[in-house]
């Protein structure tokens, strides 16, 4: 009998201990889900529950203070999340606290965060509905990141293409960048142009001086003009002058074309803009050309009014009229 009593005692200890263990484990688990202890309800409405489940933790300033007790679909855009919070939090959470749904780490489960407000407002009462803020969840963040990534990928591929074509020397910019020879050619051309225009300038000023000297020394000019040989010479000079003016005209046109080309190439413009020296030279050249042309014009006007050449111009005019007459007769 004594043995049985001892056995029963041991059995009793085992059963009590085992049951206590089981209950303790259940209590510990339940405690994490706030099944015991005093709690109070709070709620918040969201547009998107982001995979929140009942039983997920509720954190207030990063401390677990409760769990999600119920997720209710009010309508297709409103989801009411009910929470149970430890009762001692009644004196911590204020009415302007904001509720967000977040996740515990990148791969962690979802949770509800209650972020304390800044205002001086009264504490929440059981059953209150707090304001919610649908913060971008990891998921959204990732999807946004995805779009950004795609864009970046597109951009990079385009950039790659551009770089590749640049290397291969396609397009004006490419040519400019790569073809150093051409760039120096252009520079040469423009330098030549400048030289030419300068020479033309000197030539015209010399001519000007000569004509002025003709004007000043009337006797000499008279001798010269009465002399048919001299006249012949003068005519030649004027002819040459005309030729050179035509050439200048042509050159100006060419220059124009070059400048136009330069303007057309977007990259080239950039290049030209950076090369200030070159631009300056080009400017100078153009100024010279302008000056030269102006003076040439003046010379021509002076020539017209000069009595020596008046006859020649009249003759030219008559010839022109005659030609016109002939043209009219022919057409009649």
């Amino acid at each position: 009998m004594a043995k049985t009593a001892l056995e029963n005692l041991k059995l009793g200890i085992f059963v009590v201990l085992g049951t206590a263990l089981l209950l303790f484990a259940a209590y510990l688990i339940g405690n994490r889900q706030n099944m015991f202890g005093k709690t109070f309800p709070l709620s918040a409405s969201f547009k998107n529950a982001n995979g929140l489940q009942t039983g997920n933790n509720v954190r207030f300033s990063g401390i677990n203070v409760g769990t999600v007790s119920k997720i209710e679909m009010i309508n297709d855009t409103t989801i009411m999340v009910h929470m149970i919070i430890e009762e001692n939090m009644l004196e911590q959470i204020k009415k302007d606290a904001i509720v967000t749904i977040g996740s515990d780490g990148l791969v962690g489960s979802m949770l509800v965060n209650i972020v304390p407000g800044k205002g001086d407002v009264p504490y929440v009462k059981p059953g209150d509905e707090l304001e919610s803020y649908s913060r971008i969840a990891t998921q959204d963040m990732l999807s946004t990141l995805n779009v950004t990534n795609e864009n970046a990928a597109l951009l990079t591929s385009d950039l790659l293409k551009v770089t590749q074509s640049l290397i291969r020397g396609k397009g004006t910019l490419g040519r400019l960048l790569n073809d150093t020879l051409m760039a120096s050619d252009l520079q040469h051309t423009i330098a030549n142009l400048k030289q030419t225009s300068m020479q033309a300038n000197t030539a015209i000023s010399e001519l000007n001086q000569m004509i002025e000297s003709v004007d000043f020394e009337k006797s000499a000019a008279g001798v010269l003009l009465s002399d048919s040989l001299s006249a012949e010479k003068l005519r030649n000079i004027i002819l040459n002058l005309e030729n050179s003016s035509i050439q200048i005209d042509k050159m100006t046109q060419d220059l124009n074309a070059v400048v136009g080309d330069v303007k057309d190439g977007k990259g080239a413009f950039n290049y030209l803009a950076t090369d200030t020296l070159f631009v300056k030279r080009l400017d100078e050249t153009l100024q010279h050309i302008e000056q030269g042309t102006e003076r040439f014009n003046e010379n021509m006007e002076a020539l017209k009014h000069n009595f020596l050449t008046r006859g020649y111009f009249r003759k030219l005019e008559r010839q022109k009229k005659k030609d016109e007459k002939q043209m009219q007769q022919q057409s009649q």
Binding site: T4, E7, N8, K10, L11, F14, V15
Partner: peptide, 16 residues
């Protein structure tokens, strides 16, 4: 009941 307790002891405690 008594036999049940005895068996519980045999199977519970003795297997611990």
């Amino acid at each position: 009941f008594k036999e049940l307790l005895r068996q519980c002891y045999q199977m519970g405690n003795r297997s611990l």
